[in-house]
Simulated assay, not measured.
Amino acid sequence: MKFKLCYYKSFEKTIYEKICFACSSINETQNEILIGCYINDISNFESNLTEICGELDKRKYSGLDGQVWGADFLKDKVHIYWVFDPDNEEGKAEISRKGMLKLMKKWIEFRKKKIPENYEKYEEIIEID
């Protein structure tokens, strides 16, 4: 799996310009797209990011839901699902627990960096086993 960490310009209330972060799929597979959606969703609350790494590191069964996407942290896998229809197969994704932890740590590092002047062209590629 390959993910792109990048910046984009957002306009809030049509007059306020803001630079935002995004985690998106490189290969555009449904699995990767949904993983990116989950990461973007839980990132609405900064405290979720460190909490998720702690939970993934503990290796016990747990989970953390965002506003739209949820995740169950199982023994070796993370199952991601759409909160409003958790049984919908089209709204499910899976990633290894180790891969999710790696991606989350890179995501947190990326969000802490100073936004470069050429942010529109800047991106980081993360490859997960």
Results as ranks from 00 to 15, higher is better:
2 K>T: 06
4 K>I: 09
4 K>R: 14
4 K>Q: 12
5 L>H: 00
6 C>R: 10
6 C>F: 04
8 Y>P: 07
9 K>S: 08
9 K>A: 05
10 S>Q: 07
11 F>M: 14
11 F>E: 15
12 E>G: 10
12 E>D: 14
13 K>Y: 03
14 T>D: 09
15 I>E: 14
15 I>G: 14
17 E>V: 08
18 K>Q: 10
19 I>P: 07
19 I>W: 07
20 C>R: 15
22 A>E: 11
26 I>C: 11
27 N>I: 02
27 N>R: 07
30 Q>S: 15
33 I>T: 08
33 I>P: 07
34 L>M: 09
36 G>T: 07
38 Y>R: 12
39 I>H: 01
39 I>L: 15
41 D>Q: 14
41 D>F: 05
42 I>N: 00
48 N>W: 00
49 L>W: 01
49 L>D: 03
49 L>T: 05
50 T>R: 11
51 E>R: 12
52 I>W: 00
53 C>D: 12
54 G>P: 07
54 G>W: 00
54 G>N: 15
55 E>C: 05
57 D>E: 15
58 K>I: 02
58 K>M: 06
59 R>F: 00
60 K>E: 10
61 Y>T: 13
61 Y>N: 11
63 G>R: 11
65 D>C: 12
67 Q>T: 12
67 Q>S: 15
68 V>K: 12
68 V>E: 09
70 G>I: 03
74 L>F: 00
75 K>P: 00
76 D>F: 01
78 V>T: 07
84 F>T: 14
85 D>V: 10
88 N>G: 02
88 N>D: 14
90 E>T: 08
91 G>E: 06
93 A>S: 13
93 A>Y: 04
95 I>V: 13
96 S>N: 09
96 S>R: 08
98 K>A: 03
99 G>Q: 06
100 M>F: 04
100 M>K: 06
110 F>W: 09
111 R>W: 00
111 R>K: 15
112 K>R: 14
116 P>L: 14
118 N>A: 06
119 Y>W: 10
120 E>Y: 07
124 E>Q: 14
126 I>D: 06
129 D>W: 05
